[in-house]
Nucleic acid binder design. Sequence first.
DNA 1: TTTACTTTCAAACAAGCGTTTGATATGTTG
DNA 2: CAACATATCAAACGCTTGTTTGAAAGTAAA
Lengths: 213, 213
Amino acid sequence: MTDQTITACEQTRARLLEAAREVFSQCGFQGATVREICRRADANVAAVNYHFGSKDGLFAEALNFAQLKALQTENATADKCPKNRLRLFVRDFMLMLLDEKSASRQCRMMARELADPTPALDKIVTEAIAPLHEFLGHLIREIVGDKVSETECRRGVYSLLGQCVFYRNSHPVLQRLTPDLRYDREEIEAIALHIADFSLAALLAQKQADLPA
Amino acid sequence: MTDQTITACEQTRARLLEAAREVFSQCGFQGATVREICRRADANVAAVNYHFGSKDGLFAEALNFAQLKALQTENATADKCPKNRLRLFVRDFMLMLLDEKSASRQCRMMARELADPTPALDKIVTEAIAPLHEFLGHLIREIVGDKVSETECRRGVYSLLGQCVFYRNSHPVLQRLTPDLRYDREEIEAIALHIADFSLAALLAQKQADLPA
DNA sequence: TTTACTTTCAAACAAGCGTTTGATATGTTG
DNA sequence: CAACATATCAAACGCTTGTTTGAAAGTAAA
C-alpha cells in the first residue's frame, strides 16, 4: 500500500463522505439512497459497504460536530457582555443553518433528523445537542440572573432554539408562503438579529418579573 | 346497496382513515406503509387503493383542518384583549400538538410533513397554514400596533410558531435530554404559558422600540 | 515475474414498497 | 331464482431499497 494507494482509497472515502453530506442534508436519512450518493461520488454502489460497512456507518462518519463546537468555544472567549454573545451566537448559528454557501452541511443533516429518530440520533444528542443546550443554558443564565428557575431557564433555551430551527425545518412551507424568499447573507443576518432581540427582550422581562416558576 | 352495505363499506373507510392518521402522524408520509395502516384497520392491503385510489389519496383524505380552523374562529369571538387571546391560542394550539389524548392527530400529521415535502403539502399550506399565519399576523398586529413594520410582524409570527412546533418536532431529542419528560395536561399548559408570556414580552418590547425595520 | 493483498465493479440477492389482479363472498335488483 | 354490482381477499407484479458476491483491475513486496 503505497502513498498513491492510500490517497486513491482515501479520495474515494472523502468523495463518498462529501456526497453523503450533500444528499443526507437534502433528503434526510430515509430519503437518501446509497445509489444516489455513489452516483454523485462517482463510485460503485458497493463502495459504501466496502468503506463504511453500511448506510448507517456512512451516516455516522459523515456527521461532524467540529464546526458547531468551534462556534461555542469562539463565542465563549469573545468576552463581551452576555447579550452581545447571544446576538453573536444566533448570527453564527443561523449562518450555519441557512447559508447555502456554508461549508457545514452537517448542521443541516442534524436539523433534518431531529424529528425522525435515526440509528445515529443518540450519538447526535450526546455529542452535539446536549452540549449545545448546556452552553445556551449557561449563556441565558448569565442574562437572566439567579432568580429565574432552572425550568424557566431551560424553556428559554427551547424558545431560542425553536425560533432558530424553525426557519430551516419549515423552509418548504415558508418558500410556498412567500415564493420570493431567498436566504442571502443579508436576509440571514436580519433574521438572526430579530431572533436575538426578540429573545433578549423576553429574557429581560423574565428577569424583571422575577417569579419562581 | 342497502344501509348495511353502506355502513359496512363506510366502516372500512372510517377505520382506514383513523389508522392512517395514527400511522402518518407517528411515522410521517414516507415512513408509513400501506400494509401497516391496513393491519391496524383490520383491512386487506388492497383496501387502500380500492377506497382511496392510492396512498397519496388516503393521505389527502386523512387530512382534516376542521379543528385547526375551529380553534381560530373560537379564538376570534372570545372578545378579550389580544394578549389574552394570544395566551388562549397558544394553550389550545399546544394541546392540539402535544396532548396524546387529543383527537386531532391531523395537526401532528401536518407538523410532521412541514419539513418533508409531500404530494399534499401544497394543499396543507393553502388550506391550513396560510390562513393560520394570516390569523396570527392579525392578532400580533393588534398587540404591537401600527408602527411595527410588516416584515417584523411576520417574523413575530415565525418566532411564536417556531417555539410551538419545536416541542413537537424535537420531541425525540427532548425525550433523550430529559428522559422523565411527560406531556401531561399540566406540563402542556405550563409550556404554553411560558411561550405566550415569552412572546408577549418580546412583542411589547418591539412595540415600544418602535423602530422601522 | 510471481505472489499476495487491496480496491473497484457489474451483477445479482433478499426484502420491502405501492399497486394490480382475478377469484370469491356478499348483498341488491329484476 | 337468476343476474348483477359491490366489497374483500390472497396472491402476485414491478420496482426500489440496502447489501452481497465473485471476478477483474491495480498495487506492493519477494
